[in-house]
Nucleic acid binder design. Structure first.
Lengths: 107, 107
DNA sequence: AATGTTTATCGTAATATTGCGATATACAAA
DNA sequence: TTTGTATATCGCAATATTACGATAAACATT
């Protein structure tokens, strides 16, 4: 087959996996780290920095926006991306809840 | 194309993304949660519980083992899986370091 | 207005992942 | 030894993801 059977898992499991999945690509890690490294929003010299073509970066940015990790503010013909701190912390805490509730039992 | 250009990212970014990626599938979340829900190691009625075919579960277990999140102990003709608590905590802390170091700057 | 710049989207090629039937392997039980 | 049970691996089909050229859209600059 090849299609993830999302219907047999509950929505919480799908949501959690969905967040992990977005973070599960080195380009998206690199983009997040680059945005963070700058003390202000950086409009897209991300393309230059990361080393992937502009459409590819745009696609990765879209994924990151989709789960709310970053926000883009339009400034003229440029877009200024920044990390959405509230959502960032929310996701961190959400993942920690998973780790704390799941990693406790063993033989 | 379709191939992730791992060579243009540093090994830390690839490693981090690799961990996120393994956690980025609802079946693997479900497996981890099921193993955890039992107060002891669970030999594999995972197949029955999760609702995917045995080869599929076996493949997911292999991925989880690969990054060290679970360990399987052979007991006769069964294998007993449990969460590797040290590695579990190590990964949690590793991901938290990423979140703490990256999510700080904005416009 | 014409041209350049920046970003998003479309379409497509290529690789990756998912899922499972068939099978192999290893041990258990009879 | 034969049969059953549990798990891993192989091979394949199908979907998903990644990457990017071409192009569109929106604004800036001249």
């Amino acid at each position: 087959m090849g299609l993830t059977k999302t219907d047999i898992f509950d929505s919480r499991q799908n949501k959690l996996a969905g967040i992990f999945k977005v973070l599960g690509h080195p380009a998206r890690i690199a983009i997040l780290e680059y945005i963070s490294k700058q003390n202000a929003c950086i409009c897209s010299d991300i393309v230059e920095e990361v080393g992937l073509a502009q459409p590819t970066i745009s696609q990765h940015l879209k994924e990151l926006k989709r789960i709310g990790l970053i926000e883009g503010e339009i400034e003229g013909n440029k877009v200024c991306y920044c990390i959405a701190q509230d959502r960032w912390k929310e996701i961190q805490s959400y993942l920690n809840t998973f780790f704390n509730e799941t990693g406790t039992h063993c033989c």
